[in-house]
Simulated assay, not measured.
Amino acid sequence: MLHLLVADGNDRAGRETHLSVCDKTSAETYAGILRALAPDAHCHLVAPADANMVLPRALPECDALVLTGSTLHVEEGGPAVTRQCELMRAALEAGLPVFGSCWGVQVAATIAGGRAGRNPKGPEFGLARAISRTQAGAGHPLLDGRPPAWDAPAIHDDAVIEPPPGARILAGNDRLDVQAIEIRLGEGVFWGTQYHPELDLDEVAAMLRLSAQGVVEAGLCPDAPSLQAYADSLRDLHHDPEGRPDLAWRLGVTAEVLVPERRRREIGNFLDRLVRPRAARR
């Protein structure tokens, strides 16, 4: 059995808000996907932003750590951020494979000596478009199975602005240089994506509604009703992906986003290429 530590990047308020619009927390979303990809996995859900968080299992006895997205900002600091940075550092120094999307990437880059902050090119809301491998990403196992260019769910203002020394930048697009990254610290290896391979389109829609003001201010939608209509289309496409080719065409959503197995490639690659080999050795 695999023992996977799934850390929710949100503080208590962020978890409650996410739960209210998605009917599950970010950690619960990840746990469901991890169990689907690895039926032998036991997921231990934790909330490291909380002061009273206690690990249910010692780090050396875990096979991996996964850190979810978050509404927090690394640059703002504070105990909720510091506690998550400490967990990330401890996990990597203990030799664990670590995966993170969005917030997880920003935390990993920060503790390894990089910098995360507001993306000077602006936010990505809904989908990150035309992601492609860098030279360092060509042949990297995190991106196995991805085509030469792909889209992926994305919701972020912040990003890795300065990668840490020695990091391998694996993929980027015209909005952001760091869409996928490998970071090594101690005996541990971090693989992560700024985009969200874990999110279904109905969750993207729900998160867009929460971010409506930011989407409008970024000039991506003229007003809140337009954003609501776009979110409704994403939701409807999620519920009937084969029956609504009109929506897929209008929204520019391809199979790399629509098909769960393809959308979640990076998570599956992480399990197959890093977690299982280490678990077998352990």
Rank of each mutant, 00 (worst) to 15 (best):
D23Y: 10
V66F: 10
A80W: 08
G77I: 04
R264K: 01
V46I: 15
N52R: 14
M53C: 15
G14I: 12
D177V: 13
L247P: 00
S101G: 10
E198W: 08
S233T: 04
E198L: 06
A49N: 10
R209L: 14
P148R: 11
D246R: 04
G78W: 06
K121T: 08
N119H: 07
T25F: 06
F190A: 05
M53A: 14
A231S: 08
A130M: 12
C102K: 09
W150Q: 05
D200Q: 11
D40V: 07
Q179E: 12
L143Y: 04
V259Q: 01
F99K: 04
N173W: 08
G9T: 06
G32Y: 10
D246H: 05
Q84Y: 09
L271F: 07
C43M: 07
D272M: 07
L176Q: 14
G69I: 04
P222S: 13
D157C: 13
D200W: 01
D158K: 07
G32F: 12
L208Q: 12
V66Q: 04
C62P: 02
W150K: 08
A128D: 01
P148T: 10
S70Y: 06
C85E: 14
P153I: 08
R83D: 06
G9K: 09
L55Y: 07
Q194E: 12
P277Y: 02
A112E: 06
A94L: 00
L5V: 09
G69H: 05
G78S: 09
A41D: 08
L170D: 07
A51V: 14
D40H: 11
A180P: 05
A116R: 08
D50N: 11
A51D: 14
A136I: 03
N52T: 15
E75I: 10
T110H: 12
P241L: 00
A180R: 05
L65I: 10
S226L: 02
P60D: 04
C62M: 14
A108I: 11
R265D: 01
D40Q: 15
L199P: 00
W249K: 15
C22A: 15
R278I: 04
E124P: 03
D174R: 15
P260S: 06
A128R: 01
P97F: 03
D11T: 11
R35C: 12
G268A: 10
D63I: 05
E16S: 12
A224L: 09
H3W: 03
E16Q: 15
L199I: 00
V21E: 02
R89P: 01
A248H: 02
